[in-house]
Design a binder for these strands. Structure first.
Lengths: 212, 212
DNA sequence: CGGCCGCTCAACCTTTCGATGGATGCCGCT
DNA sequence: AGCGGCATCCATCGAAAGGTTGAGCGGCCG
């Protein structure tokens, strides 16, 4: 028996070096064919619509406007879409959840060894999910602890606090009384299990709930 | 006339994909020879001591203990040492300054196009410095505004504050009185032009003076 | 050597923050 | 319709953090 049909790949990453590295790693492995590589999320969406793509390797953060999670959502929304395997440097909760909600089949970190990468691509092509160990662990943590969703208003307040604003400044910015700002903060502290504004900022940053 | 002697390179990066990518990019370019690639800063220091290395391409953050800047310092401290060209994802002040103080010849970002990379390596081999445009800009900003250098102790205090510790907790951790912690914080506020701990954390984070 | 700077600490007063408690309106569930 | 849960809003009060002043010590440099 000769070669089975190779898995056809589309690479989306804004780092030329990473694209070259993925090509090098995957093309030495048998059974993979890199069809194309692109440097923006927009191009990834366009090319993923072409027939003959089995798996898209997608970075999350690009230099441009569109985020990888948005591109993932756009791709997986179409019928007969290829599988999307997210491959990124970051393992924050916000990134991981956004990607999975967008329909990603797997989530890998860029420090993964080549074999793990190949295994994950094969799994994705077969429709099975593939998570990096670190990512799987983090998701387990999340399951045990479901109280980590801040409301829109709470996130808004905490983001301003993280930017260094005092309660008075936050209240002016959001047209609230200081009492309301404090009330939001108390709820935030409860959810995050902390008891000061700086600790809340640290915890929320660690969990990727706010941008730094 | 035939080929001149190629520039001999050592690659140090904990991402297998990036190492493969650098190899692929540099080996297609004429005049480069990748002698070895390593995945830890410690190995980089060891191998850089061997004769016959012209330029070390060094990542800053490794999975392990040693940081790229420390490895850079260890390498450049020796007589007849190769040039070290830092190649990283991050362009914060703290990273850049640490690398330059450690004796790095150049500082590139990983999203650099292949030609820029090749140019920088040739410049480094010739002993000329090579800075990514973003990095150069950031250094210029720094020059205009010299009041942004925290002392070692101040940085230590502010880092703990950023981690969410109260003054009492910081004082216990560092074996100081609370009065001393406050004193450091006041100096920090003055230097950063702010007037609260959260604002100081925000300003220092924005300037890359502390890790997040 | 005298002055500058980083690091350390104390006592005092002021401002801010956090804790507590309570109100309203929206939404889903029974 | 009635209920509980949640997000949003607000006021009051004691505790913690910040601001001020003042001071001692050791290292570095012109």
């Amino acid at each position: 028996m000769t070669d089975p049909a190779p898995i056809r790949l589309l690479l989306a990453d804004d780092h030329p070096v990473v694209r070259a590295g993925l090509r090098a790693v995957l093309e030495t492995e048998p059974g993979f064919a890199v069809v194309a590589d692109v440097s923006t999320a927009e191009e990834a969406v366009t090319l993923a619509a072409l027939p003959g793509i089995d798996v898209v390797l997608m970075d999350l953060r690009f230099g441009g406007e569109m985020r990888g999670s948005q591109a993932t959502a756009a791709i997986t929304a179409r019928p007969g879409a290829p599988r999307v395997l997210v491959l990124t440097t970051y393992d924050t909760d916000a990134d991981i959840l956004a990607a999975i909600e967008a329909g990603a089949t797997g989530y890998l970190l860029k420090d993964a060894p080549p074999e793990e990468l190949a295994t994950a691509v094969r799994a994705a092509a077969a429709g099975k999910s593939a998570l990096a160990p670190t990512v799987a662990l983090r998701l387990m943590d999340r399951m045990r602890d479901p109280a980590v969703a801040l409301s829109r208003r709470e996130t808004e307040v905490l983001q301003l606090v993280a930017d260094g604003l005092s309660n008075a400044e936050v209240s002016k910015r959001l047209f609230l009384s200081q009492a309301t700002v404090k009330s939001h903060l108390v709820h935030i502290y409860t959810k995050l299990g902390v008891d000061s504004r700086t600790a809340a900022v640290a915890a929320a940053t660690a969990r990727g709930l706010i941008r730094r």
